[in-house]
């Protein structure tokens, strides 16, 4: 019989809730809490031989030590595989499960499965690194979660081939798997179209990224004293593109000091952007980042002041996740400099 070690938090171990979230890692022999549901789903092929428990706060605040202790505890039981959670929508627990699972895979080289709600921050952090089974957002989904996690863990432990995410029920991890479907693509597409026309449910094979919304920022009441910042996805960079921002699918953004610069002239600036004819932007980079008129307007008293840097990346084929990250980082810098409003230009 295969041996499994199960990682859970203080809450599922019955130690306590938030007030006990600082408990240190502890190893208990056999099953604790949701482990019994796992055991039932292993159907005699595997058994939870030990359970490692750690408080969610303790783990996240002392990640290095906690992780080392937890890995030592897991190793001491010499298991064939490891299961973490499920964590549902508990953020710190999800991050802990993902971190432990990733370390089990990377450092102990053992098969591992975890489970959590898709919006748990641990999901985005680790879904491309370890197998994460999507679950409901609360523990009412325990039975269903374990019913997917156990067979996937068993398959991994036995070294069997893992199929596509939609069939094996794990979060898409960016790895493409080739397989022969019963129906050819054309048939599947027509089936989907008919279902759609009939208002019946269908599952897309190529989901579009979801776009969330944000609350509009408050209107500026006194522009003559407002601090403005310029940001662009049009790829304007100092000549020579010193940070080597990629012409498509940019992996970074740049921030360039424009104190004392009155205009983005073609002698000192250019665009790094692919996918559009760069000649107009190179001829006059103000056509993309209107620094020249913003300077004029500051002189004329229409705008208060300008943030000393402009931020730039290339929007061409750049991943939503990258753009999000750049926005977050740029936004933080703007907040720190008390910027009131942003003009963001796109090509």
């Amino acid at each position: 019989m295969l041996k499994c070690v199960h990682y859970i938090n203080q809450f599922f171990a019955g130690i306590g809730g938030e007030e006990k979230a600082d408990v240190k890692p502890e190893l208990r022999k056999g099953v604790v809490g949701p482990g019994s549901a796992l055991n039932a789903q292993f159907k005699g092929e595997a058994e939870v031989v030990a359970t490692v428990i750690c408080g969610d706060s303790y783990f996240n605040e002392n990640e290095k030590e906690a992780l080392k202790t937890i890995l030592d505890m897991i190793k001491s039981e010499n298991p064939d595989f490891v299961v973490c959670g499920p964590a549902f929508n508990a953020g710190r627990y999800g991050v802990a499960c993902g971190t432990v699972a990733n370390a089990v895979k990377e450092e102990l080289g053992l098969p591992v499965v975890t489970g959590m709600y898709e919006e748990n921050p641990g999901a985005d952090m680790f879904k491309t690194k370890v197998y994460i089974v999507p679950t409901k957002n609360n523990a009412a989904g325990m039975g269903e979660a374990v019913a997917w996690m156990a067979p996937l863990a068993l398959k991994l432990a036995k070294g069997e081939e893992i199929g596509v995410s939609s069939k094996e029920h794990y979060m898409p991890n960016g790895v493409r798997t080739n397989f022969f479907d019963d129906k050819i693509g054309a048939e599947r597409a027509v089936d989907m179209l008919i279902a759609k026309l009939q208002g019946k449910p269908f599952t897309t094979e190529y989901p579009m990224p979801s776009f969330d919304r944000v609350e509009p920022g408050k209107a500026i009441t006194d522009m003559a004293h407002a601090r403005i910042a310029l940001v662009t996805s049009g790829g304007i960079v100092p000549k020579g593109n010193p940070d080597h921002i990629e012409s498509s699918n940019a992996q970074k953004y740049g921030g360039y000091n424009i104190e004392g610069v009155d205009t983005l002239d073609s002698e000192h600036y250019e665009t790094a952007h692919g996918g559009y004819d760069p000649s107009y932007a190179n001829e006059n980079p103000n056509r993309v980042v209107p620094l020249d008129v913003v300077r004029d307007m500051i002189k004329d008293g229409e705008i208060g002041s300008l943030h000393p840097y402009f931020y730039t990346t290339v929007g061409n084929g750049t991943a939503v996740a990258s753009a999000k990250k750049y926005g977050e980082e740029i936004g933080k810098k703007l907040v720190d400099d008390h910027v009131d409003a942003v003009i963001l230009t796109s090509t």
Partner: peptide, 29 residues
């Protein structure tokens, strides 16, 4: 980028040519 800057409460105006993309992505101004 627009949204993740605006998340901090700073209003962002998106100047762009293909406004339907901006609408889809979720710029407010």
């Amino acid at each position: 980028m627009v949204k993740n800057i605006e998340k901090y409460g700073i209003p962002v105006v998106h100047v762009c040519t293909v406004t339907p993309i901006s609408m889809t992505v979720g710029a407010n101004r």
